[in-house]
Design a protein around this nucleic acid. Structure first.
Lengths: 165, 165
DNA sequence: ATATCTAACGTTATATCATAACAGTCAAGG
DNA sequence: CCTTGACTGTTATGATATAACGTTAGATAT
């Protein structure tokens, strides 16, 4: 668990290009306004950092970037901003990597599945309607009131498959 | 993240009763023999501890129990045993809780889904064929070679639903 | 305008989870 | 016997996360 985010450079995931990042950021702001959320400077900048990243970032990686830019230097600063983003559907926590990534589809109500490459640690957010439907059914059958779910798949992304072929 | 395992006592999940635990343990031993695994005393005892637990246990909780019984006292002792069990399908790691739980169906090839109660931290292993099928399809569509997956649902178990009704 | 309130921020300090690296032990096979 | 490799245990440290508290700043009501 030492190999977060930027570790492998440009490997697999079609990570958010700059243009896309701008669009997502705008969308996030619109949502924040609409829902009465306060997208403060730290929070906004944290989201930007995630959008600019090539992969998921650990909280301490985010913190270092924030600190360099004059925000607070201590862990709670990063954790609070990240938790805010996660709680409001603007980012996701990738537990397997102890890391965070910007949500690729902030507008839609969704519980996404993440495809985590064992070769390069890239993270792809996959649409998972079928998966969550199946999960909802399983929960229902167990009499369990489902709130939300974490779905993380480990395997090899296309590029790493080809590389090892 | 302070409230592991035994915290809530007898709450929700129909956790493994003693009889069931014996059966699972026997099954585990059979599997170990069949597959040439060494189910050593620490490993076996670790599995027993998980089977006896009312919920998922953190590594340090397991460690404390092992230490009391004359096994090693340092974290790697617990982590090694737990990782062995997880790698060989005898236990699961619940990442949301930073905890481990015995596998309820050690014989079958399965990628289970876990229903984690937000009220009492109980963990139920739900059969998830439909879920993993859907996930496999999503991975396939993304050109991702799926190896294994972690599926963790958060919500309220039946008992906690009734309690809060 | 200004008093008041609350959410957010930043800090110190500490808790919690996890692994690297190395030495000793022991059973299996040459 | 003695080597070999897997396992255990230790020390030491690293990595992740949160509790608690004082301060700041934006909103609200007067």
């Amino acid at each position: 668990m030492t190999n977060h985010g930027s570790a492998a450079g440009f490997c697999c995931a079609d990570h958010s290009g700059a243009a896309n990042a701008q669009a997502i950021l705008a969308q996030a702001e619109a949502q924040a306004r609409a829902r009465g959320l306060r997208l403060t400077p730290v929070r906004r900048r944290t989201l930007e950092i995630l959008l600019e990243a090539h992969g998921a970032l650990g909280a301490y990686e985010v913190l270092e970037l924030l600190a360099r830019e004059g925000f607070g230097t201590q862990p709670p600063v990063a954790y609070r901003a990240l938790n805010f983003l996660v709680e409001n559907g603007l980012a996701h926590r990738i537990r397997r990597l102890n890391a965070f990534t910007a949500c690729a589809h902030p507008s839609e109500e969704h519980s996404a599945a993440f495809l985590i490459c064992a070769g390069c640690d890239s993270v792809t957010e996959a649409p998972a309607r079928g998966v969550s439907d199946a999960l909802a059914a399983a929960a229902e059958a167990a009499g369990f009131a489902l709130e939300r779910a974490t779905i993380e798949a480990v395997g090899l992304c296309r590029i790493c498959q080809e590389a090892s072929a």
